[in-house]
Amino acid sequence: MHLAHHHSADTRRAVTEPAYPPLALVTSPTVPTEQAAYYLNRRPQTLRGWACAETFPDGLRPVRINGRLGWPVAGIRAVLGVA
């Protein structure tokens, strides 16, 4: 007898999405692309495209740190309208 295992969408999401701290608890000045995308509800590749074409929202200019993008936490908060 074959038993099918079904997982809810919440279970799959918990396995596939990394757990980042709430934005209010982030104390570093910048976060990596994947984390910024999580907070902005966008895919990381979207943020990379913004950085390449310089079409990011006002106040969200990324900085390059050893060849990687760092997204300012203050800018993410500003875009989201969070104090």
Results as ranks from 00 to 15, higher is better:
Ile76Glu: 03
Pro22Arg: 04
Pro62Gly: 08
His2Cys: 04
Arg48Asp: 00
Arg48Gly: 02
Thr55Lys: 11
Pro72Met: 13
Ile76Lys: 04
Pro62Val: 07
Thr33Ala: 04
Ser8Asn: 06
Glu34Cys: 08
Val15Glu: 15
Gly59Tyr: 01
Val73Thr: 13
Thr30His: 04
Leu25Gln: 15
Leu23Arg: 12
Asp58Ile: 13
Pro57Val: 11
Ala83Arg: 15
His5Val: 13
Ala37Glu: 04
Thr27Glu: 09
Arg68Phe: 05
His2Met: 09
Ala24His: 09
Trp71Asp: 07
Tyr20Cys: 01
Pro18Ala: 14
Ala19Leu: 15
Leu47Ser: 00
Ala36Trp: 00
Ala19Asn: 06
Leu60Arg: 04
Leu40Gln: 03
Glu17His: 10
Gln35Cys: 08
Ala74Ile: 08
Pro29Phe: 00
Val31Ser: 03
Arg12Ala: 14
Arg77Ala: 10
Ile65Thr: 05
Leu40Ile: 06
Arg42Val: 02
Asp10Thr: 13
Val15Cys: 11
Ala14Gln: 14
Met1Ser: 12
His7Ala: 06
Arg13Cys: 08
Tyr38Glu: 04
Glu54Ile: 12
Ile76Trp: 06
Thr33Arg: 02
Met1Leu: 09
Asn41Cys: 07
Thr30Glu: 02
Gly49Phe: 01
Ala4Leu: 15
Phe56Lys: 03
Thr55Phe: 11
Leu80Glu: 12
Thr30Asp: 01
Asn41Leu: 06
Gln45Tyr: 03
Leu60Asn: 03
Ile65Ala: 05
Arg77Thr: 06
Val26Gln: 02
Ala9Lys: 11
Phe56Cys: 10
His6Glu: 07
Gly70Trp: 08
Thr16Leu: 13
Ala53His: 14
Tyr20Lys: 01
Pro32Gln: 02
Arg77Trp: 07
Gly49Ser: 06
His5Phe: 13
Tyr20Met: 01
Ala36Val: 01
Arg64Lys: 14
Ala53Asp: 15
Ala74Arg: 13
Thr27Trp: 03
Arg42Gly: 01
Pro21Met: 10
Leu40Pro: 03
Arg68Trp: 03
Cys52Asp: 12
Ala14Cys: 11
Ser8Tyr: 08
His2Thr: 05
Arg43Gln: 10
Cys52Ala: 13
Ala14Asp: 13
Thr11Ala: 15
Val15Phe: 11
Pro18Tyr: 08
Val73Gln: 09
Ala14Leu: 15
Glu17Gln: 13
Thr55Arg: 12
Tyr39Asn: 06
Arg64Gly: 02
Ala24Glu: 14
Tyr39Cys: 07
Tyr20Pro: 00
Thr46Trp: 00
Val79His: 07
Pro44His: 03
Gly49Gln: 06
Val73Met: 10
Leu69Asn: 11
Thr11Met: 07
Pro44Gly: 01
Thr46Ile: 05
His7Asn: 05
Pro32Arg: 00
Tyr20Trp: 11
Tyr39Val: 07
Leu23Val: 04
Pro44Lys: 00
